[in-house]
Design a protein around this nucleic acid. Structure first.
Length: 566
RNA sequence: CGGGGUGUGGCGCAGCUUGGAAGCGCGCCUGCAUGGGGUGCAGGAGGUCGUUGGUUCGAAUCCAAUCACCCCGACCA
């Protein structure tokens, strides 16, 4: 492609609406055109990268036995009513109505449709297992689209669905997809980590996310180098540092004027925060819940929500707490009745804690569980954090930020049951199909790749997903011998099967070099009067390193060697 | 949904407080020079100032409503 003919132009200045690196660079490089909030046109350079990502995905899905289909984006609402997701997913559904008044939606995902397809085609255990996938546009009315392609309202996803006769089969399908995903990300040149993930309300038993480390990522992962344990913070277990364990002393009430926060309390009493207990109140589906946890640990609201099996969980306000008979600033479960009480497992260890006295300006000291109070339930509801021990005891946890580029789940029988997708087993009895689902955010992956691979000059594409292999630059193209040599090299490189973006514009060297750095193709090839005089062309890797000067006839071979290095 | 911010040529912005002929930089077009890291000089084209309504002799500027976009939070299979 000749740059002089390319649809898009580069921008010298950062667009004001973009803050995230990938968003900013994709706009500057002319890969994207924003049409509405979270809605983008993919311009030629972006589309070429996406096509390469999709190709790798297809090859790995096919290798894993997948069969590609294409399902509609437009769904009748009643299909979603069958699973109740018209309600549970209502917040993100784009809904519309046709001319006859029939309710439709733009699909955010395809479990219902794919299950109905399999229901119509798989009647016997002989038809299973099946792995069906598609690459298709999804629509989600996100509360807040952001960061360009990282969180859009219309985006491309590869979604795959496995259908097995039993849970052992699902385990095999799931494992096969985990391996396929690892292959996809490795082949794209994009290191990711598979981490344990929260599986959500209907998620079944196992779930993993594939996280690409990047500063701008929305996800937080707890990772142990020693054991390899890795989990999303929503799910991560941990061993907090132990609290002091002195001999138990008698419970005592003490004045703590003006002391409300845990840091204040610890300072006032001269004890570590790990020797305090804090109380947090939540509204769970309208019910007030009192949560007790060690003072130096935060509540993990996802764990709490799962434990409570609550649909809606939020912090209760001071008024709601008082209405339930609690004393904000000095609450504890000691002597509390009539409120559901949950405690984190951290209260089991340690002794002589300080805790609220349920009256203003007073706290208890030397609180010991279960001697001095009891709770309805004790569960793991702690937020793991850096510095905690790995749950396998192998070492310390670190926190890693990243972008979720893939997610796999064992769904189980939920959709099959809701939609009546059963099969006849070898004994002639009807059984529910056991299902898994597996997603890769294709457009998000492109953005994440740029988040992970850029410098202050621009994008640094991994070779496998770069829009073109080579960025051919001619300097002083108004000199006939330069133009002719560059044209010839352009033809020769392409004839050799290389993908070349040819900057044939009448621009100054600085402009051309800066654009080459911005676009970030893996190898830059320079044809200039100076090089011609020496009978060479110059190749340089975008990732860095010294330029290499070789005769034009050797350029293709050298380029291939450089591309192979990434 | 709560909080904050921004809408002025293709892009980035000033002008608005205190109403009185729409500006700057980049990009774009023409010409000349230049030619290894956003080159220089000269000339030129391009704007319903988001929209609607109001105040006023007069509105980019003041008032109201509304729409859009961005950021933080909530939310997020």
């Amino acid at each position: 492609m000749r740059l002089s003919r390319l649809l898009s132009k580069t921008l010298r200045e950062d667009p004001s609406e973009a803050e995230t690196a990938s968003h900013r660079l994709m706009l500057r490089a002319g890969m994207l055109h924003q049409v509405a909030a979270g809605v983008y046109a993919y311009l030629p350079l972006a589309l070429r990268s996406l096509a390469k990502i999709e190709r790798i995905i297809r090859e790995e899905m096919d290798a894993a036995g997948g069969q590609e289909v294409r399902m509609p984006a437009l769904h009748p609402l009643d299909l979603w009513q069958a699973t109740g997701r018209d309600q549970t997913a209502a917040a993100i559904l784009f809904q519309l109505r046709d001319r006859r008044g029939r309710d439709l939606l733009l699909a955010p995902t395809h479990e219902e449709v794919v299950t109905s397809i399999v229901k119509a085609n798989a009647a016997s255990y002989r038809d299973l297992p099946l792995l069906v996938y598609q690459i298709q546009t999804k629509f989600r009315d996100e509360p807040r689209p952001r960061a360009g392609l990282l969180r859009g309202r219309e985006f491309d996803m590869k979604d795959a669905y496995s259908f097995d006769a039993d849970w052992d089969g699902l385990d095999r399908s799931y494992q096969s997809m985990v391996e396929a995903y690892s292959n996809v990300f490795r082949r794209c040149g994009l290191p990711t980590m598979a981490v344990e993930a929260d599986s959500g309300a209907i998620g079944g038993k196992d779930s993993h996310e594939f996280i690409m480390p990047a500063e701008s990522g929305e996800d937080l992962v707890l990772h142990c180098r020693a054991s390899g344990y890795a989990a999303n913070v929503e799910r991560a277990k941990s061993i907090p540092p132990p609290a002091p364990e002195p001999d138990p002393l008698p419970l005592a009430l003490t004045d703590t004027p003006g002391v409300i926060t845990i840091p204040d309390l610890a300072r006032f009493l001269g004890i570590p925060e790990a020797q305090t207990l804090k109380a947090v109140f939540y509204q769970a589906d309208g019910q007030t819940v009192l949560v007790t946890i060690r003072g130096d640990i935060e509540v993990n609201e996802v764990k709490l929500k799962n434990h409570l099996r609550a649909n809606d969980l939020r912090l209760a306000g001071p008024e709601e707490a008082r209405a339930a008979g609690l004393t904000p600033g000095s609450t504890s479960p000691i002597g509390i009745e009539g409120v559901r009480t949950i405690a984190d497992e951290s209260i089991r260890q340690g002794a002589n804690f300080a805790a609220g006295a349920n009256q203003p300006d007073k706290h208890y000291v030397n609180v010991n569980y279960p001697r001095d109070f009891n709770v309805d339930e004790v569960a793991d509801i702690a937020r793991a954090q850096a510095g905690h021990g790995s749950p396998d005891g192998a070492g310390m946890l670190e926190e890693v930020r990243g972008v979720e580029v893939g997610h796999v789940f064992k769904l189980g029988e939920f959709y099959a049951d809701a939609l009546g997708a059963s099969f006849i087993d070898a004994d002639g009895a009807p059984r529910s199909i056991v299902m898994g689902c597996y997603g890769i955010g294709v457009t998000r992956l492109l953005a994440a790749a740029i988040e992970q691979n850029h410098d202050d000059r621009g994008i640094v594409f991994p070779a496998p997903i770069a829009p073109y292999h080579l960025h051919l630059v001619s300097l002083n193209p108004d000199q006939e011998q330069v133009r002719e040599a560059a044209d010839r090299l352009y033809d020769d490189l392409r004839a050799d099967g290389l993908e070349v973006l040819y900057d044939d514009r009448q621009e100054s060297p600085g402009v051309k070099f800066n654009d080459a750095d911005l676009l970030g193709l893996p190898v830059r090839v320079v044809v200039s009067p100076r090089n011609l005089r020496d009978g060479v062309v110059e190749l340089r890797a975008r990732r860095g390193g010294e330029p290499q000067r070789v005769p034009a006839s050797e350029a293709a071979a050298l380029a291939r060697a450089m591309l192979a290095e990434g």
